[in-house]
Each structure stands twice: as C-alpha cells, then as structure tokens.
C-alpha cells in the first residue's frame, strides 16, 4: 500500500493500483510459504481463477456498457444441471465417447446463449432495469436447478465423468485446459474491448447512452450482445466446471456473480459504466483468488476470514476509483 500511495497522480493510481496489489500479494505469498511459487500451486490458482475469470471477462463488457448481470452464478448452476441431465439421458443411446461430450458442450453453449438473450431481451426491448431483471432470473435459475436435482445433487454418470475429466484436469504442453481457455477468452476480450467498434460502442453507451443513440449507435443491439456474450461465456465456464466435480446442486456457482462483479471493479472498470478494461479484470480475479490461496497456505489468519479480506479489497478498490473522479 505504501508503494501505491507514493505514486502521486491519482489517474495513474487506478492503473497501477491493481498491479501493485497483485505484486504485493505474490511477494507476501512467496515469503510466507515456499510452496506458493511452485508450478503445482500456480497451476492450481490459475485453474481455479478460470471459471470466475471467464465469466468476469463477459461481465466487464456488460458493466462497461452500463449494465449488470446478477444471474450468472445461478445460470452456471442451471446450465451445469441441464448439461448433466442431457448427457445422462443420452448415455444409453450414444455411449461413452467424444460425441456425447460434444453434445453436452453444445447444450451448455446454447443454454448460455438463450439465457443471456432472455436477460438481454427483457432489458433492451422491454426497457426494464438490468438489476431487477437479472435479480429475477437469478432466482429463477437457482430454483430450476434445485427442482431439476429434486433438492439434492445431480451427478454425471461415473464412467462418463471419468472420460470427461481431462477437460478440467488435463492439458497440453504442461498447461491445463481451463488455463488455456481462460487465456484465449482474455486475449479475445482485450482485443474486442480495446480495438473494435463493438468495444468502443460499449464504452460510449455506458458513458452516455443518449449520446450513443443520437450518434446512430445501435444501442439496444450492442447492449443485447453484451448479455448474450456473457451467457455464452457462462456456458464455456460451465463446460470447464462440470468435469471438475461431475455434479450440480443448488449450491453450485453460489455467489459467483458477486465474485465476477468484484473482480471487474477491483480491476478498475467503472461500476456505472463508460470505461472498462479486460486485463484489469484478469488482475482483479487473480487478486481475489490469491487471497484465498494465501490464507489456505499460511496459518496467520483463519481462512474463514477470506470473505472479510476480499470485501475490504473491493471497498478499497472503489475508494481509489472515486478518488480519480473529482481530482481535477
């Protein structure tokens, strides 16, 4: 923190702040536990970050365009449940093999697409508030997955699960698939945000949607696309998540929406929209995951206080963002 306060101009603070915080966390972790920097732990941290990270990249676009999506955690649980159900049902017909896994992935992607589209239609075509719409759909998906699982847990057929597991645990060139997919999503997202008309339009709409409308920007379509994209990314995250535990229950993906939103904000994207950066979100995700990891590896502070420290970081990030505004 001392390093951060030394850099005097506050505008740079919001850029450097998250990076400095990440570096400080890494140094702290390395000093406290020699295993922290081991390949195994780094891979573990990045793989765990991947689910929230993939979703948070999509959330960055939604928030930048002045929206919000609270439904992603429930959506992930519902998609996971649906995916398991479809795969189990298709198992007697298709047998274990790549086709059934591809079927499951297709189900996840389309379910995500439709769920995102549903949020998008309600928000952009009916002009409803994003907070209210996604609060509603959050409840609906959470309840649906509980109903699908009949209050218990939906489990993927054991042999199918063993076949599907490499998607989470396997990898190529020593890097696990979730990390590779996460990296691809981040690179694509960064390019989309920084260098395309779509990214520019998101920032314009979040900054002032009237100006965007009067500038002939297709406001409703761009907004819609941010929700659809987020839905598809939730689908992708679920595809990576299901082989990890092979089950879905009403507790799956709990609070993911808040972790994703927190990562976006910690990364320096403005909560009220108009400005967003994907690489910042990645740093935000890493910071939040590392806190949990460090607490687990050391016994200085109880891991039960993980939430409290994450909460403090989020508040701090917003305070730093605020300091940027009135500092003329």
């Amino acid at each position: 923190m001392t390093i951060a306060t030394l850099s005097s101009p506050k505008i740079k603070m919001s850029v450097i702040g998250p990076i400095v915080a990440l570096v400080v966390l890494i140094i702290m972790g390395a000093l406290m536990n020699p295993n922290f920097l081991s390949a195994g732990n780094i891979s573990n941290v990045l793989s765990r970050s991947a689910f929230i990270g993939i979703i948070a990249v999509g959330m960055t676009f939604v928030i930048t365009a002045g929206g919000l999506d609270l439904s992603v955690g429930s959506m992930a649980a519902f998609i996971a449940g649906l995916m398991i159900l479809v795969m189990n049902t298709a198992l007697p017909v298709m047998g274990i093999g790549i086709p059934i896994v591809l079927l499951g992935m297709a189900v996840a992607l389309f379910a995500g697409l439709f769920a995102g589209m549903l949020n998008g239609v309600l928000i952009t075509r009916l002009g409803m508030d994003a907070f209210i719409v996604t609060l509603g759909s959050m409840g609906i998906y959470r309840s649906l997955v509980t109903w699908l699982a009949d209050g218990g847990t939906l489990s993927l057929d054991f042999s199918l699960r063993t076949f599907y597991q490499p998607v989470y645990y396997g990898g190529t060139l020593g890097v696990s698939w979730p990390i590779i997919v996460f990296a691809l999503v981040v690179i694509g997202g960064e390019l989309l945000m920084r260098s395309t008309a779509f990214g520019r339009h998101c920032a314009a709409i979040g900054s002032n949607d009237q100006v965007a409308r009067y500038s002939s920007v297709r406001v409703a379509r761009v907004r819609m696309l941010t929700y659809v994209m987020l839905g598809v990314l939730v689908g992708i995250a679920t595809i990576m998540y299901v082989p990890r535990l092979g089950s879905a229950s009403s507790a799956t993906g709990l609070l993911w929406e808040l972790e994703a939103i927190a990562a976006v904000i910690v990364g320096g994207t403005a909560l009220k929209g108009g400005f967003g950066r994907v690489w910042g979100t990645v740093i935000g995700v890493l910071i939040l995951t590392l806190i949990g990891n460090i607490l687990n590896l050391t016994d200085l502070v109880s891991p039960y206080l993980n939430g409290a420290i994450q909460g403090a970081i989020i508040i701090l990030a917003v305070v730093l963002q605020r300091g940027r505004k009135p500092g003329q």
Partner: peptide
C-alpha cells in the same frame, strides 16, 4: 452536452463515434 458529445471521453473517440464503421 447531454446528447451530442461524450464529455468524459477524448476528441478522437467523439469525432469518430457516429462513423466508426468507416474506421474499422
């Protein structure tokens, strides 16, 4: 001020907002 220009963005972003397709 409220419908014509994005006051918190730079000149370049504002200038090309209406015809971004020509530049991309």
């Amino acid at each position: 001020k409220t419908r014509g220009l994005l006051l918190t963005k730079g000149l370049r972003e504002n200038l090309t907002l209406q015809s971004l397709h020509k530049f991309s």
